[in-house]
Nucleic acid binder design. Structure first.
Lengths: 214, 214
DNA sequence: CATACCGCTATTGTATACAAAGTGCGCCGG
DNA sequence: CCGGCGCACTTTGTATACAATAGCGGTATG
């Protein structure tokens, strides 16, 4: 996607995820165009994409509203993500290159360091965690899977999950990554799948334990 | 999606799936606009959607080409479809309404009739089969799942699969639907999931047994 | 007082014009 | 003859103008 479209997408997505645009509230193309400082054309493209990713919904006839994600929707997202990302891990186990494996090791080393500190460096954790999962998904070598997962992995959700983790849990997360690396090194698809499933399911429960939407 | 966009989408998708637009061949917005008899604007929307569904790919910089689905891609599609649609069946098992269940029964009765004939009515089979799966997915009550599956269930692929089925296999397909209905009636999610998995996996192997792309 | 009809307005859909960017071809120089 | 540079053309991206449509409110009538 090109500059203006991308900007509009990021901007509108930000409005929704930050809560500035409340669930159920109407969105008009022109108002968004003004906010983003671009014309309606790129806004429309951004909206199509956001609609496909279920950030927004179309009413009876074509009016747009911010989607309302309830607890059940979020649970379903985690379930789908666990299924698909575990499948990705299984694929990656037999396809990953030595280079990618090294990249994962480096990534997880940085996560370990960030977590080991007296005051864990959550920002680094989040960045490296994202890289870790991105490398894994890339190693699965399935554009379809990558596309689907992209619509399922919401960084604000991940952030809220990590914010809830204490140091022990952050360390456990890093440990799970380590086990995943072992599974990859052994090219054991089942193992990788199981570890990833647990990894995501645990994140789900940590997320659910967090206070409701702020 | 509205009239012109929808038309462009259907038209272009048709070009690709019919083989009129060969894999790897370039597509230009203007040429497609001419073919569809609309302007570039709705064509662009259609292309975005087709890109998201991986019918087309974007080159290094923004030029569009017909995607090239090889055997591995198709296998991955079936695998993902089996996973997701089985999950949908599991959800549907505990959520389906009596009305929807009746609709499935009626649907499958028509499939049974179409298959029982000396010369099976494949057209009816395909229509009712599609309805059957659509009702199931709707009963799962997960817009996300529905969106994802929509990009995975290609009717031309289904058609080729069914064309390969002989009467015994068509009947077996109907029988599997019947078992799914039983699982739904019993509200047994695991059973429903297992039956659906087998149903799709069997379709995959029937499809693979078919001659390579004509 | 309720309801139905009509017309205005707000919003989305489509077309077109223009801007930007990339590609390929031809020309020139080594 | 080969390689690099530059220009023209093709193609995509964005803005804007116009068309169609749906929603809303007012008014008039039963």
């Amino acid at each position: 996607m090109s500059k203006a479209s991308e900007r509009a997408y990021a901007e509108i997505r930000g409005l929704i995820l930050s809560g500035d645009a409340l669930p159920g509230s109407p969105l008009t193309e022109e108002a968004l165009a003004d906010i983003c400082g671009v014309s309606r054309t790129p806004v429309r493209e951004a909206l199509r994409r956001l609609e496909a990713e279920l950030y927004i919904v179309r009413s009876d006839s074509q009016r747009l509203f911010v989607a309302d994600w309830n607890a059940e929707d979020l649970a379903e997202m985690f379930t789908l993500r666990a299924m698909l990302e575990a499948h990705a891990a299984a694929r990656a186990a037999t396809r990953i290159t030595p280079q990618a494996l090294d990249a994962l090791r480096a990534c997880n080393a940085r996560i370990g360091a960030a977590v080991a500190q007296a005051e864990p460096d959550v920002a680094t954790f989040l960045n490296e965690n994202r890289s870790f999962h991105e490398i894994t998904i890339a190693a699965a070598d399935s554009p379809r899977l990558a596309t689907m997962l992209a619509a399922l992995v919401e960084q604000p959700v991940v952030r809220r999950t990590a914010a809830r983790y204490n140091r022990t849990e952050l360390a456990r997360s890093a440990h799970e990554h380590g086990e995943l690396i072992q599974a990859f090194a052994a090219q054991d698809a089942q193992w990788a799948q199981a570890v990833m499933t647990g990894h995501i399911r645990r994140a789900f429960h940590a997320f659910s334990a967090a206070e409701p939407v702020p």
